[in-house]
Design a protein around this nucleic acid. Structure first.
Length: 508
DNA sequence: TTCCGACAGTGGGGTCGCAAT
DNA sequence: ATTGCGACCCCACTATCGGAA
């Protein structure tokens, strides 16, 4: 199949706002793609590459060659070129990679180049990713969407699942099973503003588990072999020897467990997230790192144990098996209750212990991987500050032409100015975007370039955030974590905004 | 007819490894 | 030795579609 056919369908999908319409376009193409190219077509049309990552980002994609006039590239040819780009390594590899990217683009038309540019930079923006593609695969293959989704959960890679469905229908999909040693899409949690709302969503009685601010891990053990995967199914076995040893210490040799690794201080309180993230992502000299910053693991679910797959069992039953499999010191602290007051006390306790919050879980929900359903609901405490807008950046995509990303500053009584604490674009409605764009242009003052408009520091905005973290980037040495806009405060002037000292007192 | 669950989009800060300078 | 890039860890929020109620 020619690449241009995929590009045309992608453009049709972009033009069609209705989800069913998008699914129709995608399914039509899947109905005529050959078996040998189905995986490539599905990957491209859901924003992925068969190679997953190829070491090419925005920088490598600048200064591309002139386009060709005739569209002749096939999916197979493009795929082979991407594989070659990924394979480049060693000295001079960046130049070699750029050259190969240049060769690839020199063989494409303007239309094809625009598509590949968006695909390679991870910004397909056609309004369809895995969620829509699942439906399209179902439609084209005649298999129920629920079977496609389940196979994806177990296999973790839609192009492979989709190709199997197109070739062998529902029979092929049902052949995907939980395989020890291959990562499963993890179950995700929705969120709620407070404990009562979370209980409302999950239903009572519910289980409340400590939410630890670490790295999500899925541990597989087959005999003496342990493999550990992250939330995005990347393998980190070599970075977490403590976890490997803990799993090898369990009596069972046939396990799939879900949990969190976190670096704890000697007194048992958690290190800042940055410490855990640094430890887990370091690959060099892990033996020495573990002496200084040991990792602890806490499991909260079992997907396989006792020789059986547990995904379809209700939470309460999986917990029973988990309790029989894992000693108490490796279990995430939890409480089962139907009492809001008791639940709120448990929340206060976990926050006091320095942890992130709670995950409230329905006792009856199966392990519904890959979706943020009502089965699991997280609750975290929320801080707020009144900060001053220092500048704003022009938005992209659907925010094109709107000033979107705000630069936030706290008042500095010493210096008399403002200290930048980070940026945010979250929490803004379309109405607010329109309003602030107009207002900022009135307030424009100082250095302004193609991306950023500096404004007079007059507007006060109320910001919610999860915490203050140490920052190597901002002048105050600190930055807000997960900052989002709650509302503007027209009743306040910049002189009324919170100070750097207030922010500093929130760090630690 | 209204409500609400699921999805896609829009980006945030921090860290690592590797290559280039 | 330092800097830039790509990838991945953590993530919040709004708009929209379309099935459920």
């Amino acid at each position: 199949m020619l690449l241009i056919e995929v590009v045309r369908v992608s453009e049709a999908v972009t033009r069609t706002p209705a989800r069913l319409g998008k699914i129709g376009h995608l399914a039509e193409l899947l109905g005529r793609v050959g078996a040998g190219e189905a995986e490539i077509a599905i990957a491209y049309l859901s924003g992925d590459l068969p190679q997953r990552q190829i070491g090419v980002g925005w920088r490598t994609l600048q200064d591309l060659p002139q386009p060709k006039l005739a569209a002749t590239a096939t999916l197979t040819e493009v795929d082979a070129r991407l594989t070659a780009i990924k394979a480049v390594a060693g000295q001079g590899s960046q130049a070699a990679r750029r050259a190969l990217v240049g060769e690839l683009f020199a063989g494409l038309t303007r239309q094809e180049q625009a598509f590949m540019l968006r695909l390679l930079s991870g910004e397909l923006r056609q309004g369809a990713l895995d969620g829509v593609m699942i439906e399209a695969v179902a439609k084209a293959s005649g298999a129920p969407a629920v079977d496609v989704r389940r196979a994806l959960t177990l296999r973790g890679w839609l192009p492979a699942v989709g190709a199997a469905a197109l070739a062998g229908g529902v029979t092929a999909l049902r052949a995907f099973t939980l395989e020890v040693g291959r990562a499963v899409s993890p179950m995700l949690a929705g969120s709620a503003p407070n404990v009562a709302a979370a209980l409302d969503k999950a239903g009572v009685p519910a289980a409340l588990e400590w939410k630890l601010d670490g790295i999500r891990v899925q541990a597989h053990r087959a005999g003496d072999t342990v493999r550990v995967f992250t939330r995005t199914l990347d393998e980190i076995t070599s970075q977490v020897p403590e976890l490997v040893e803990a799993v090898l210490g369990l009596p069972s040799g046939d396990l799939v467990l879900d949990g969190e690794v976190i670096a704890l201080r000697p007194d048992g309180r958690p290190h800042p997230f940055q410490v855990t993230a640094s430890r887990v992502s370091s690959k060099l000299d892990v033996a020495r790192l573990r002496e200084r910053t040991p990792l602890s693991v806490f499991f909260f679910d079992a997907l396989r144990a006792g020789g059986a797959d547990l995904l379809d069992l209700p939470y309460a039953e999986r917990q029973r098996v988990l309790g029989d499999t894992v000693p108490p010191e490796l279990l995430t602290p939890r409480l089962v209750t139907d009492d809001v007051t008791e639940a709120e006390r448990f929340f206060t306790d976990v926050v006091k212990a320095g942890h992130e919050g709670l995950v409230v879980k329905s006792l009856s929900s199966p392990y519904a991987a890959g979706r943020r359903g009502a089965g699991w609901v997280k609750v975290k405490p929320r801080h707020t500050l009144d900060l001053v807008v220092l500048a704003a950046e022009w938005g992209h995509g659907r925010r094109e032409g709107k000033l979107s990303n705000l630069h936030l500053g706290a008042r500095d009584p010493e210096g008399g100015g403002f200290v930048m604490l980070g940026k945010t674009f979250k929490g803004l409605t379309d109405e607010l975007l329109a309003w602030q764009t107009e207002r900022f242009l009135e307030l424009a003052d100082g250095p302004t370039d193609a991306w950023t408009v500096t404004v007079r520091p007059e507007l006060v905005v109320e910001i919610a955030f999860d915490g203050v973290q140490r920052s190597p980037r901002y002048p105050g040495g600190m930055a807000l974590r997960f900052a989002r806009v709650l509302r503007y405060r027209p009743d306040k002037r910049a002189e009324d905004a919170d100070t750097v000292e207030t922010v500093r007192s929130l760090m630690l």
